[in-house]
């Protein structure tokens, strides 16, 4: 484990990782600050930088969108149904467009732009929450299995078992089973949100667990762990102070992969008709609802699809850049 985060630092007797010579922050250059070094490496990866820019843009777009474009995504405007996007005027002068619906409206007159914003909020929220749950479970299982030998066998057999489960069919079955009870308990939107997030999180932690376990096993043999143990550090202090900071980089890389796959899985579930209820827009749901009339209105498929694809693409590029920045050995692969 030679990640950039642990190399320039050495754990002091107190256990916290500090630079060897504490310098005043003004003259501290990037090389002595591990995260500055990571950021400098990250900046050299053009795709990752673009990806980060796009992710920030999409997130801001979805967060601030309702203030910038205060149209309710569910508001029916039947007089203005089936409008085309305004840019259609460029090549088709007779297209029905209106500046009150810049990206057009659907067969019930709901504004596509407002639906995209609302759908993005849900899709991104599902992605982040499911990813955090998967990382939490994966890190917990991985650290426990790597650190405590008596837990290793049973936890890793369990991981292998979950890996052998056919995930997508089971996701579909679980969605079908628990949809109604949760909907009854928490209301339609919250119930499905809890269900999707839990189900995706509970079925995508295995790779993280394996990677973290491998790294913890290697870390346990390092001198600083031996040193910390020799002064009698118990496991409950050892893991958060010495182990976790050093497995942070693989966790961050698999977190980006997890975010991307969680967004895709949510859209796929919505696309198969087993996601959120139909009046509740997510990007996958918008795409699915528009496929019936995509011959006449391709833009209704295009925009949500582009939103999903570009978000996932930028997250994957961030993951690539992060991996390069955190692990100098594999740079450029």
């Amino acid at each position: 484990m030679t990640d950039a985060a642990s190399e320039p630092t050495r754990p002091g007797p107190g256990g916290t990782a500090r630079p060897l010579r504490p310098e005043p922050p003004a003259v501290r250059d990037a090389a002595t600050n591990p995260w500055g070094d990571v950021w400098r490496q990250f900046r050299t990866h053009k795709g990752a930088l673009l990806g980060l820019g796009f992710l920030v843009f999409v997130t801001l777009f979805c967060l601030l969108g309702p203030w910038l474009w205060p149209v309710s995504p569910g508001a029916l405007d039947v007089r203005n149904k089936d409008l085309r996007p305004v840019y259609h005027l460029l090549w088709d002068g007779s297209a029905r467009v209106s500046w009150s619906h810049p990206l057009g409206s659907d067969q019930l007159g709901r504004d596509l732009l407002a639906q995209l914003i609302a759908g993005g909020r849900v899709s991104l929220a599902v992605g982040w929450t499911a990813m955090l749950i998967a990382m939490l479970i994966g890190t917990l299982v991985g650290v426990l299995a790597g650190y405590f030998r008596w837990l290793d066998g049973i936890l890793m057999r369990f991981t292998d078992l979950v890996l052998a489960l056919p995930i997508l069919p089971l996701l579909l079955v679980m969605m079908l089973l628990f949809r109604d009870p949760l909907r009854a308990t928490f209301g339609p939107a919250t119930g499905i949100f809890i269900l999707i997030v839990t189900v995706i999180g509970a079925t995508s932690w295995m790779q993280t667990a394996r990677i973290v376990r491998g790294d913890v096993l290697a870390l346990k043999e390092r001198e600083f762990v031996l040193a910390a143990r020799s002064i009698g550090t118990p496991a409950r202090r050892m893991i958060p102070r010495h182990i976790l900071p050093n497995v942070l980089s693989p966790i961050m890389v698999s977190a980006t992969l997890g975010l991307a796959s969680a967004i895709i899985t949510e859209s796929a579930l919505s696309f198969l008709g087993l996601g959120f209820p139909s009046d509740f827009p997510t990007w996958g749901k918008l795409l699915f609802d528009s496929t019936d009339r995509m011959a006449d209105f391709p833009e209704r498929v295009l925009w949500p699809g582009l939103a999903i694809s570009l978000t996932v693409l930028s997250v994957n590029y961030i993951g690539d850049g992060l991996r390069d920045a955190l692990d100098p050995r594999i740079r450029g692969r």
């Binding site: 795409l287 496929t291 995509m294 498929v301 699809g305 999903i308 693409l313």
Partner: peptide
């Protein structure tokens, strides 16, 4: 190809 979901490439 790795990022764009198959349901979008298919529809496209």
């Amino acid at each position: 190809g790795f990022s764009v979901p198959t349901f979008f490439t298919g529809v496209l």
